[in-house]
């Protein structure tokens, strides 16, 4: 068996530490030997052009990988997926979304939403637009849960960006706003499912009701009229508190 670790990334832990813990626990039930790393992949540093700084930072992460002797990194963030693919020496990223169809969902969750009257529009992450297996996994999970879904006009490899990518928000907020507005314009339903917490924050920022797929997996069944979880990422203090809680949760999970 290859040595696996779980790496939730940054925005997911900042957004929903419970989902991180529950995911880690479930993965651990399947792979009892699994470890975990919570650290940034350095994508924002690379994105703003700090090439040297990025090298330092990724080396820092690489040290963690080496320390825990990771061979496969189960990632819940599409940026991590890309950065590890490109930069890691010896580790292979495995997207959680591609893995779930292989290991299955916890049996008690299968079909839990079959009575939901909501149809979710799927928003794909643009950074993994060519990762079809990952995209299939998302559709598989939603189907297993029992949700009805529709695809927007630009989907999968043609998905349009949420406006967050490339660290544009701090540089050109007005533009980022126009980008996300154009993205949601083509959605045909008011309920959106994403698999990147940053995408979700972009949508929530302009009042589009959106759920992270892990909200749907571990949280309550969503029915027409339900409100999505709050836009935690809009508050730095809450985000960092969550990030901390996530770390604690992972430590706890790894200890048992």
């Amino acid at each position: 068996m290859t040595n696996k670790i779980f790496m939730p990334g940054c925005s997911l832990p900042s957004y929903n530490p419970e989902a991180v813990s529950k995911t880690a626990a479930y993965l651990k039930s399947v792979y009892p030997d699994m470890g975990a790393v919570q650290k940034c992949c350095g994508k924002p540093t690379a994105a703003i052009g700090q090439t040297e700084k990025f090298k330092e930072r990724f080396a820092d992460l690489q040290k963690d990988f080496d320390k825990v002797e990771a061979e496969e990194v189960i990632v819940a963030c599409q940026s991590c997926f890309g950065m590890i693919t490109k930069n890691a020496s010896g580790q292979k990223p495995v997207s959680l979304w591609a893995l779930l169809p292989q290991i299955g969902l916890p049996p008690e969750l299968v079909g839990k939403a079959k009575n939901s009257d909501v149809t979710f529009t799927i928003h794909d992450s643009c950074s993994t637009r060519f990762e079809t297996e990952l995209q299939e996994g998302i559709r598989w999970v939603l189907k297993e849960l029992g949700y009805k879904v529709v695809e927007p006009k630009h989907t999968r490899e043609n998905a349009r960006c949420c406006g967050f990518g490339g660290m544009v928000v701090p540089a050109n907020p007005d533009l980022a706003d126009r980008v996300i507005k154009r993205r949601v314009e083509e959605f045909e339903t008011d309920y959106v499912v994403v698999y990147c917490a940053a995408c979700r924050a972009s949508m929530m920022g302009i009042g589009t009701k959106s759920w992270h797929i892990l909200d749907l997996l571990w949280g309550p069944v969503v029915m027409q009229g339900d409100e999505p979880p709050a836009n935690v990422l809009a508050s730095p203090v809450k985000s960092w508190m969550n990030r901390y809680r996530s770390k604690v949760g992972l430590n706890r999970c790894m200890a048992c």
């Binding site: 790393v37 901390y244 770390k247 790894m254």
Partner: peptide, 9 residues
């Protein structure tokens, strides 16, 4: 403060 790295027990 915000990071961790643990091998499995």
């Amino acid at each position: 403060i915000f990071t961790m790295a643990k091998k499995a027990v």
